[in-house]
Write a protein that binds this DNA or RNA. Structure first.
Lengths: 138, 138
DNA sequence: GTTTGTGCAAACTGTTTGCAACTTC
DNA sequence: GAAGTTGCAAACAGTTTGCACAAAC
């Protein structure tokens, strides 16, 4: 992966600022979706305001540069947009989030469309369970 | 369905109060999950405080008498516990919520368990789309 | 009469917004 | 220098909580 996000920002019509470069750089290193507050805390050195974090993340998400992810708690999370369809699984115990590449909901969606008359059906799925590490500790 | 919720409340160890009877009665008539604020607004005659609504709903949900439902927005919704597994589909345009009885995620869950090592995998699914009424109006 | 529930107001949490100062282009 | 971005403080929305009073058992 590149470590220079200036071209990416320009491509989306955003001005290039230190805050945004830091945000994208951190998000790109993330192994799981992050909340605005986590990003703000981790980038404390950069002394950017929490409002700036929210504003940038929202702009990026609206533009499709990153994706908003809702994992069932009260936080909005963000992750770099992957080009493949995927879901997440959250550990009940440690909260770790992993990606799930499998998905068999398209057939189900057609069936639902047929039975309910809904069109353009999208789905939002979050799995949860006990991750291997936590399960073995019990 | 019964229209006397006093025995149900006693069975769960709750005191029987006017507010709780009204809440359960309204929830039981609901055709879709309701938010605390909707319930509060609809039961305005009963002049119960919003805090009371929240406290009762939370107690009921913790006890398993009703279920908390998260539909992807900022509201917690509640519905009577049904004994069958089901999901919801929300209309993008009018917000109407319908129940979906179909679900083919158990096979997928086993596959995920095998690949990721997670145990006791649960899933939370929300479908969304354009409902028949809204689609035909466009 | 002890336990539990209620109303009211105040607090709390995640997020958004108005505005003046400052960067970016 | 015009347009877009930032920091700060204040506002906002949904929800929770402390406390004195009241109802349920």
């Amino acid at each position: 992966m590149t470590n220079n996000y200036a071209p990416l920002l320009r491509q989306y019509g955003f001005k290039v600022t230190r805050a945004r470069l830091k945000l994208l750089e951190r998000l790109n290193r993330a192994t799981q979706p992050m909340t605005a507050q986590e990003l703000h805390a981790e980038l404390a050195d950069a002394k950017m305001d929490l409002a700036t974090v929210y504003r940038s993340l929202n702009k990026f998400a609206d533009a499709g540069l990153i994706a908003r992810v809702q994992l069932g708690d009260e936080f909005a999370r963000f992750e770099f947009v992957k080009h493949h369809h995927h879901h997440h699984i959250v550990c009940n115990s440690c909260g770790k989030v992993s990606e799930i590449e499998l998905c068999n909901l398209d057939a189900l969606s057609s069936e639902i469309a047929q039975k309910t008359g809904f069109r353009n059906i999208a789905h939002h799925v979050v799995f949860s369970g006990d991750c291997q590490d936590c399960a073995s500790k019990q």
